[in-house]
Nucleic acid binder design. Structure first.
Lengths: 230, 230
DNA sequence: CGTCATGTTGAACCGAATCAACGTTCGTGG
DNA sequence: CCACGAACGTTGATTCGGTTCAACATGACG
């Protein structure tokens, strides 16, 4: 079993709705697991009855076509929930983008536990609704925005989501480190590596941002960036 | 108040989880409302504290940019749920594509009722999870598929979703009537009207489908269509 | 220091958008 | 009932943004 009382996401994950006794029961069902960067936790179409909470690290949700094209349909951070409760197979793969730790549950056990704990279920519902909003917002980006608008929107969203992550002490002034490379940015935005790179270079040329290292982004002119995001 | 016992979606909407007493209580909070085709029920960014169930008709969820581009991020059918429970403003507009009837609730009342009825909340959670899967699947389409793949995927999904709708008696052999025109197909697929039209014409030329009238589609060769969908 | 993965830059190409004209269908009122 | 106009849909010519293919640069790491 797992000791949830010391869990790094104890107060942010859906578990926050549970009291000491309940969390003990949930802890008995769960098990901590380390995942290395690049490793896939769940395969698309896989019937694996598994759900999980992210403790540390960043993972991606990926949908692929038969001929190998990939689209990242979600990026999950610590305290986020992974998997498909209530009996359906996972419609996407889950792969770690950085080394990560997750807290895994058997889906059937989790479903049962959730049914008996409405507060937890409500927390999960709220999270799912937020994810749905985010996904729909992303659909607008994928369907209707130009390459530069896509990149600008992406950088703004990432700067927001990453600053909630505790790593802000390391950022002098609005800079942040992306947990992924160009190919993965391209897979998020529905672009190619080359187009992504060109847009970033262009923005650097315009002085809107700096690129101190491969994965670091410093937004110099947030207003301009917002204007570019469309 | 509303009499739910005669409701056309009584057994399919989230209300199906409620017993006679409970449905009576919910009925007191709800109110039936007719919406004309083209009329907007909820505005993007609008704080209107409203949620609803669809009784009849088809509605679209739309996200727009400042300069007028539109992306349809969801299409809802009878028994589907509309709106954003739990305190957030609606991040998209909801507009009727056909004449429609919805059963409207004040969001705060609904939230409260839902919190007191875990079964209803679980039904809503399941629905939201399904919607999220659909949205993510759609993200792959928008980000990575070509125009012909988009149109093929769209027609296949619509033929499935529309055949669950009771109107199959009117379909001789796999044909169905779309509840929307070319512009709206384009807004769903992230394409222009012209490209959409050309793809349909091309498919007709190849004999994969027939277009008996503006909004009717008959899929002649489902296997070929599936192959085109990517 | 050399190798390999990752990222950048350039040139040519292509698919979808755009711009423009023309057909078709539907509703409305004469 | 037919004539008209408006909305909707199709088709063609051209343009353009993003992909593709290819070469080269950078930086991490043994």
């Amino acid at each position: 079993m797992t000791d949830c009382s010391t869990c790094v996401v104890r107060n942010r994950a859906i578990c926050a709705s549970l009291d000491a006794t309940e969390i003990l029961a949930l802890g008995k069902m769960g098990r901590k697991q380390k995942v290395r960067a690049g490793q896939t936790l769940l395969w698309e179409g896989d019937g694996a009855p598994v759900v999980a909470n992210v403790l540390t690290g960043v993972l991606k949700l990926v949908v692929s076509t038969a001929d190998g094209r990939e689209q990242i349909v979600g990026v999950v951070f610590p305290s986020d929930f992974i998997g498909r409760p209530f009996g359906k197979e996972s419609p996407y793969s889950v792969t770690a983008m950085t080394d990560a730790e997750v807290c895994i549950f058997n889906r059937n056990n989790f479903d049962e536990f959730a049914s008996a704990h409405p507060d937890l279920q409500q927390k999960l519902l709220r999270r799912t609704l937020d994810e749905l909003d985010r996904a729909r917002h992303w659909m607008m980006l994928l369907g209707r925005k130009s390459a530069s608008e896509k990149v600008a929107s992406f950088l703004l969203e990432m700067s927001e989501r990453l600053s909630g992550q505790g790593c802000d002490a390391t950022n002098p002034k609005g800079g942040f480190e992306l947990p992924f490379g160009r190919q993965q940015i391209a897979d998020i935005l529905g672009l190619t590596i080359e187009t992504t790179s060109r847009q970033l270079t262009k923005m650097r040329g315009e002085g809107v941002l700096d690129l101190p290292s491969r994965r670091e982004i410093v937004i110099n002119d947030r207003a301009a960036m917002e204007a570019m995001a469309g």
